[in-house]
Design a protein around this nucleic acid. Structure first.
Lengths: 145, 145
DNA sequence: CCCTTTTTCTGAACGAGTCAAGAAAACAGT
DNA sequence: ACTGTTTTCTTGACTCGTTCAGAAAAAGGG
């Protein structure tokens, strides 16, 4: 388990000012992987009832830029955040309920990074999203349309 | 070049009613790959000045569900549409200007489809987005921040 | 402890996309 | 062709995630 002091440490390590909203946001992202901004606002307010939504948006942006959290946004979804950073991992997204799970890089050494033809682009990241149905949704046929 | 009659054919083939907005939208998507909805509305109105934005939104949804066009939406971007469907191809997105290019599937037989651990999900598609800088943006250092 | 800079708060604003109800158009059957 | 039914289009309002702006508060170096 990660403590508040650890989060302060992480902020300082990234040369960021340590503020209560930031610590709370960092804690919320660690506690609720793949949570959307609204859930994070809720989690932050459990601890800091008067935190503004703007502070949460600002903190998330700062933390994302600093590399302390990662922002993901599958098509058709709102922004979601996770604390697992630095490892090149991907996600499975349920088409039916939107549930997200982590997936380690399919092939050992990030082969997806090699596009067959990069059109002259200089590529620095390959993002993979697997689409399907989560166990719950593939069991019940509801929503399969 | 694809003609209006071809588009009507495609609509009938998909068991969809042939309407002028739909034909125009299909034409616009074919003419402007990776265009966003607003650009498509503009292109449609060049031919059908009184088309409503709602008709375009509706048509795009119908065409997407029918598999006649494909909707893509890289994180942080609005929805974009393309007419290249059925082949499992991917995209390179410029972090700086948002330009998008097509990329054929990196490895011959869609290996990315095999997640290392699917968490019990039944996966039906693997979407790959390559992030980087387009030739123009990697040349000029502007925007690299 | 003070000062400057950065961050947060309040509240308004924005924009892509959706919802709803009535009018118009498509197409199957006669 | 004409009619009737169903689908689609138009108009206009509206939602919701996110951002903008200015004033107030807090962080951290000297």
């Amino acid at each position: 388990m990660t403590t508040s002091a650890d989060f302060q440490q992480m902020l300082r390590g990234a040369a960021l000012r340590v503020t209560r909203p930031r610590v709370a946001v960092l804690g919320a992202v660690h506690a609720h992987p793949h949570a959307d901004t609204d859930s994070i606002i809720g989690a932050v307010r459990a601890e800091l009832p008067d935190a503004s939504h703007q502070a949460v948006y600002d903190s998330l942006r700062v933390l994302t830029n600093a590399g302390l959290v990662r922002r993901i946004q599958p098509a058709g979804s709102v922004a979601r955040y996770e604390s697992r950073v630095g490892d090149n991992h991907h996600h499975v997204v349920c088409r039916s309920c939107g549930a997200i799970s982590d997936v380690d890089c399919a092939v050992g050494e990030a082969p997806c990074l090699t596009a067959s033809d990069d059109n002259g682009f200089s590529i620095d990241e390959a993002e993979v999203v697997y689409w399907g149905r989560c166990p719950a949704c593939s069991g019940s046929e509801a929503g399969s349309f």
